[in-house]
Nucleic acid binder design. Structure first.
Lengths: 148, 148
DNA sequence: TTCTCAGATGCAAGTGAATTGCAGCTGCTT
DNA sequence: AAGCAGCTGCAATTCACTTGCATCTGAGAA
């Protein structure tokens, strides 16, 4: 059964990160995976309200998953935390993301590239090592076509 | 006297936006102009602590200045509002910011540029209009040298 | 310069999402 | 089957803003 297989896969992912595969945690991860855009804590809690899980539990689940790297936690600028499942072929830094500052939607921008000029002219010092080593995540923030 | 002249200039800017040039407001704007990176409400309040201005006042000043367009109010992703003076040559999107995901420090990266290739190969559709029109703000997120 | 008042401030109280403490459960390892 | 480190629910707390209100004050009018 496909669904069952999927759940087992999620359990495996969670356990591989050293976390327990508890029902609420799996449900949260499953929900985020099924969603095509980032969800706020409130969104997640509401969608899982039928289970009567505590908001603190949901929040801890989201935080744990984020720390484990299974989920990305960002604030698109409206002071609301949003969570988005990260798939394996989708590591941070692999490619830039476009974040809509209005609706929070995140799109991938594979065809954009960041050019770093090693700067002698920069007002103060050089860019951080992380930038040169490309160990960074690039967020391009603006209004998406729908919100424009 | 240069400093005095500068203060008068700031007063003029503030008044031109329909705001009163009060001491605290001018001090806030002056501080942000002198700072080379965005400051949080707390940063500003601490730096101006010698004046014993109320935090609510500082906050209202920051908000007012932001609404007037003299200051930019952003959240780099760590859930802390940050304020940055906008000079004329410093419009939104003019340059990217490097954000340390550990300590939250924000640096400006004037020597980085965003290259957008018009993509026929992108998995789904084209990049948002905002990207092409450069009406975006770029955040480069990673560990700063100090936190690395 | 003095007058006047909308706008600004200080103080204190309110708000609400995020976080934490703790006692009682429960995956999961042995 | 047993034990415990990790989770959960509940409640309380924290903390960063936000607001209400009485009191000042910048700046245009007289």
């Amino acid at each position: 059964m496909a669904v069952r297989q999927n759940l087992d896969e999620l359990r495996g992912l969670v356990r591989a990160k050293g976390l327990r595969a508890t029902p609420s945690r799996i449900a949260v991860l499953e929900l985020l995976r099924a969603s095509d855009s980032p969800m706020s804590h409130g969104d997640v809690a509401d969608r899982l309200a039928t289970q009567a899980w505590d908001r603190a539990t949901i929040y801890r689940n989201l935080t744990d998953l984020a720390e484990a790297g299974l989920v990305r936690r960002t604030d698109v600028g409206d002071h609301v935390w949003r969570f988005e499942a990260m798939s394996d072929d989708h590591e941070a830094g692999a490619h830039p993301h476009f974040v809509c500052t209005e609706c929070g939607t995140v799109e991938c921008l594979p065809e954009i590239e960041l050019a770093v000029r090693s700067s002698r002219t920069a007002s103060r010092g050089k860019p951080p090592r992380a930038v040169k080593q490309r160990q960074v995540e690039v967020h391009v923030r603006g209004l998406c076509d729908a919100c424009q």
